[in-house]
Design a protein around this nucleic acid. Structure first.
Lengths: 341, 341
DNA sequence: TTGTAAGCGTTATCAG
DNA sequence: CTGATAACGCTTACAA
């Protein structure tokens, strides 16, 4: 059943029926009631394609998600997406996802933005210099970046965590406890967030006049095995570091496993501080959380990013909008003074 | 730039231009080349809404994802989705996701199916009796279920793992090793897959004439903390079970943590067998995997489910199609004979 | 308050 | 091989 049929059935014009259904003010209460009831009874739902075409709005937001070489989705996405998706849903928007091979992202973004299927897009996982930003600016479609790049950040919308500060604080906390050998297991450093985290770590060490030691710094895809393997390497050293900083709770689980396998105790023999995105399925909670961490919810980020994008769509001339969040430092069971001190 | 403008520019009719771009056979190679180049040069992309409207195809597949009470997305989704999304992308389809509160799913599915935004939908996480199935059958939209229900399974498309068999084998393996006290940490049993797993476990115990003991059987949301807490409970018992069966690698990580915290060793003091969905971010691999498991890739399931749906869309009169997969039993480091035997 | 008619950007039909 | 014309199902001036 389409609009025409429904209006024939009601002996009304399509116009009136459309107005009634979309809640326009000029239609009388009596007819509105009749229309809505008939629509319900006949199980009529307006075609989104047709209304989108007519109004020039797609009522959808695009996400482009790159698969890594192993064809997997970064697990951090699922929490971000559940936050964003919830916002869209409440506002009547849909989430459109394109999963693409790494490298094709820019062209896919362009196509997505141009073919009129979405009213705005989210940029995930910005690299240090990210061509998507200029591409989207050229096209003129509203977008919000989750994170930042090294490009002029005043020209686009973004929400980011203060990664430099977070990792500086984390490092300082370990220094205060008396640690001097602090390893760092980071994400890939072409990702902007990872680069900033490294800066925070290095700044803190510099200020404490401790030399940076590349031998105890790792980068890679933030997975459980990454943490496990890296930690195993570290424990093999003649003088293993007494503390480790990690970029996500996933490798932290792996690191903990390696420590325990070696018969050592986390929080005593080895201190661990992690960045806790508060992944829903790996809660670092309890009376005293398992891990000491710098914490910021990635789901909340998804919510805010989505809200900001919808705002920008409704006020296209608004100035670029930014939010920089501070991470909490939460003490857990995984840190203590180094034994030898 | 739209089709009309491009065709004016080329001094051709919109028809011809459309045909050239869509690769219809009746257009000459010369004009096709000219058209494609001009489209490229002018950065022309056809409007998906318009073409969808004209062809009556949306070129999108709908997924409805329920948030749990804690507003989080089940992490198993992200792997499933990356598999499905990859298939869609290669076939030129988009993935449309609606994130909804638990309970609203059925009505959202109906709306999604009716408003013409998608050409088919995927049903996730079927419960034992799932009203969505009949709703979608009434509407007449193609759909594929990931899993099954207790309804007549010959009437709809599905892909499922043989959960009964998998958990029966897992239990039998532990029995063969000599275990008699085998605990079971399951998902919520209103989910059909969880119910089937329980059946497999119980069948094996029955056949071995071992009594079912509800005190060592848990159900809940499959998270790390669930495994941790349940395991802690079990270890408090006067005579803790010597082996545990778990429904996902997430609670298994938690269980392992509890065992290690208690100063015990997994694979010696406590044997663990898990169901391994091969979650990308928690690989149970290595020369000898960390966990003994019954294994079936949830990402592969996403791939197959998507492929089947696209097939059904292209051959609307095809009979319902099913695939029942057998899980592998993979031996890892987490199992051994009970110490007391 | 309601209706008429012209779009929105494509594709499909049919004729040339 | 190419082109005019009518859909696709809805919204929106403009009229009544």
């Amino acid at each position: 059943m389409n609009l025409k049929e429904l209006s024939d059935f009601l002996k009304l014009s399509p116009t009136t029926v459309s107005r009634a259904i979309n809640g326009y003010p000029e239609v009388s209460e009596a007819t509105r009631k009749r229309v809505v009831e008939a629509a319900e009874a006949n199980n009529y739902h307006p075609s989104h394609l047709a209304s989108g075409l007519a109004k020039g709005k797609a009522m959808a937001i695009g996400h482009v998600i790159p698969l890594s070489k192993h064809m997997v989705m970064n697990p951090h996405f699922s929490d971000f997406i559940s936050g964003a998706g919830d916002v869209y849903c409440k506002a009547g928007y849909d989430m459109l996802i394109r999963v693409v091979a790494e490298g094709e992202e820019e062209s896919v973004y362009k196509k997505l933005a141009k073919d009129g299927r979405v009213d705005g897009v989210i940029v995930h996982g910005p690299s240090n210099y990210d061509a998507r930003i200029e591409a989207l600016q050229d096209i003129g479609i509203p977008f919000v970046v989750h994170g930042r790049t090294n490009q002029d950040e005043s020209t686009y919308n973004w929400v980011d965590v203060n990664n430099v500060r977070a990792f500086k604080r984390a490092t300082n906390y370990l220094l205060d406890l008396g640690h001097r050998d602090i390893a760092f297991i980071n994400g890939f450093e072409f990702m902007n967030f990872a680069m900033r985290r490294r800066s925070g770590y290095e700044e803190a060490l510099h200020e404490a006049s401790i030399e940076i030691n590349p031998e105890i710094m790792f980068t890679g895809e933030m997975t459980e095995p990454q943490g496990y393997e890296s930690m195993k390497q570290l424990l093999k050293r003649a003088k293993p570091p007494t503390a480790i900083l990690l970029s996500s709770i996933l490798p932290s689980m792996g690191a903990m496993r390696a420590v325990q396998e070696a018969g050592l105790t986390v929080g005593k023999d080895v201190s661990i501080v992690t960045f806790d995105d508060q992944l829903s399925f790996l809660q670092n909670s309890g009376d005293i959380p398992m891990f000491t961490s710098v914490r910021s919810s990635i789901r909340d980020a998804g919510v805010r990013v989505a809200e900001i994008l919808l705002d920008q769509i409704n006020q296209p001339k608004a100035d670029p909008y930014h939010e920089l969040w501070e991470a909490e430092l939460v003490l857990g069971k995984s840190t203590g003074r180094p034994v030898s001190v």
